[in-house]
Design a protein around this nucleic acid. Structure first.
Lengths: 214, 214
DNA sequence: TAGATTGTTAATCGATTAACAATC
DNA sequence: TAGATTGTTAATCGATTAACAATC
């Protein structure tokens, strides 16, 4: 009831606050004002205070914000106080890169299986996580409660496997395939489109050149 | 002079238009109206027309847009009609994943070197691209004109190597490290922050659950 | 020509910034 | 207490949507 709808722009900044606060924590900084933080992050102090007040009053007048407290609170807002079972579909370089990234584990994202269609990968393990064959996926999903599936396989494969995942109770999909998955509204889809990111870079690169020429 | 400042929101949608038009092209669709396209892409027709008209009038009243023509024009706007020399710094799974992704090559992004500090990787090649030692990087940059560098190495390494790249004429950085690089304004930085993407997913996942409970 | 659909202006909506009273 | 800084309201800015005249 008290929940207002939080805009995407705000949600996108939350992990950023979390990262900067984590850095400050490492540097043993105890407290910080919205003004100081705004200089470091290159956003406005006003925006920081507005963003945070969507979720409650975490600061104190005349003092600012306690770094450790705010860090933990944002962690909770992001759901990092919980643990999630995650699988990776597609054991190529990208899938293996995700599997090897140990920091996810620390934040509560437990990778418990990697799936691929290539029989040569059967039985191989990445950082102790077994690579399983995709045809055993439905059974695996029945036997294990999986919250998140990362799709690191080509477009067609991703479009095929996504409905299977949803059907077996997967709630969120981290999509690296070059397609917008068409799934029911209650499924959370977060996409990372690498080639689109590279195209934005190339657009900006050409812009920059153009401006120089003028 | 005729250039107005294009907003980030528009630039972000350009690769998306490009992808959808590419799909239509494959399906041999010859022409499309903003209205039809808006249904497929789940944006408003108004937005499509507004976005495109930032760059010129590509359509025709009563007809719509010619798919092939519009696809090519957007490609040009994105700078995909040019070729770029690219290097990858960090030959871990993620760096190798990028090196193996052949579609970049097709779009004009030629990966001509991969760098790493691990001497065991010296002499190894990925898809024919040699892995070189990072201490040879400055010399390599002098001998080759590099437009883009992808940083697929840990934060500290990225922060160290970025100024070296800039000093030797690299114009754009595709940053996968968990840091906001502090570089001169004329350097184009496009960042892909995977853990921040995963945190957004986890936020949305918890939101969705909360709404269900109500 | 009549119908369709763009290009573009005007209206609306939402997000960011500024300002300041509340208060630690 | 005086100074600092938040929480929050109001003002501004920008992006999205609606509407429609222009025109193919």
């Amino acid at each position: 009831m008290e929940e207002r709808e939080i805009s995407k722009a705000v949600v996108k900044r939350l992990p950023l606050y979390y990262r900067y606060l984590g850095d400050l924590l490492e540097q043993k900084v105890e407290r910080i004002s919205s003004n100081e933080l705004s200089h470091q992050m290159k956003v406005t102090a006003s925006q920081i205070r507005q963003d945070l007040n969507n979720f409650g009053g975490f600061g104190q007048q005349g003092y600012g914000y306690n770094v450790k407290y705010l860090y933990n609170e944002i962690g909770k807002i992001l759901g990092l106080d919980k643990t999630y079972n995650m699988i990776i579909i597609g054991a190529g370089n990208l899938g293996q890169a995700l599997a090897n990234y140990v920091k996810f584990e620390k934040r509560g994202f437990r990778i418990i299986g990697i799936f691929d269609v290539n029989p040569r990968l059967s039985g191989v393990a990445v950082r102790g996580i077994p690579i399983l064959m995709t045809d055993t996926l439905p059974q695996f999903l029945e036997e294990n409660s999986i919250h998140i599936a990362a799709l690191t396989l080509p477009k067609n494969g991703a479009e095929e496997v996504a409905p299977v995942l949803v059907e077996h109770g997967v709630k969120a999909i981290w999509n690296f395939a070059h397609t917008d998955l068409n799934l029911p509204d209650h499924i959370v889809v977060e996409s990372v489109h690498l080639s689109e990111s590279l195209m934005q870079l190339s657009y900006n690169l050409n812009c920059a050149n153009k401006n120089e020429e003028e």
